[in-house]
Amino acid sequence: MIRRAPRGLAEHAPILFPALMLVVFFVIPFSLMIAVSVFRRVPGGFYEPDLVFANYERFLTAFFGGVMSFSLGLAALVAALAVGIAFPFTYRLVRLSRGAQIRWLVFLLSILSLSEVIIGFAWSTLLSRTAGITNLFVALGLMAEPQSLSPSFGALLAGLVYQAFPYTVLVLYPALARLDPYLEEAARTLGSSPLRAFFTVVVPALRNTIVATTIMVFVFALGSYLLPQLLGRPQHWTLSVLITDQAIYQSNMPFAAAMAVFLVLVSLALVGLALLAGRREETA
């Protein structure tokens, strides 16, 4: 095989299709969104082409600043918890027998196939006073009477982490499966307890994978808009919920677009960070 830069249309063909898809499904919609975000809202109507920044001005208020920082904080917490739980889980998973691994992965994929609505309903039932888990605690004598645990911040967090968990495991899986299993054993022969070996060797050795996965889960959680409605109280509604409100219920496309552009820019900045981390890993 001679490696050289492709010449002519025919040799470029293999990348034309993905490039086209990227343009059609990302560049064009995103450009349209940016365009709409500076359009002028016609109250009682829809919107008209224009170049105004009122939508961005409206966004830059303490209220939306508060919602934005809550959304970012929530997404960060979800990412930290999901990775914090999924990492040790996956570390154990890759050491199971092949059959057991396949069963777990099928189970995780089946969670992935659940819609956000179903997850939201399942958790609100699980955390309800009338049919929820506290009834079990009461039966076991751990609680005096059943309590309602949803909607609440804890319920929202649980739902989001549950939803993000399978993604997190599937993203971590290849890196952990490739990790030399003897690293941990080496650390043990050098005087580290298994737990200490995990934290001083396994975790630092996969630092960049962990960072990249955390950012992915963060972006994923940032886009969640159904679970905050189903499991959270209004103060737990994320920016995505408000974008949905504006786009669907208020028909205020310019404002929804302005908020969405802002959210996409934050997401892109974080993906950029992930790529940067990946590059450092390569040079390391």
């Binding site: 003897y182 050098l190 005087g191 307890s193 070996a197 630092p204 390391a284």
Partner: peptide, 21 residues
């Protein structure tokens, strides 16, 4: 006795050098 209390040095086939150090 657990491995980390035995104070034996071991060289692994893969060497198992810690890549982040």
């Amino acid at each position: 006795a657990p491995a980390h209390t035995r104070e034996f040095g071991m060289v692994f086939q893969s060497l198992a050098l810690f890549p982040h150090l």
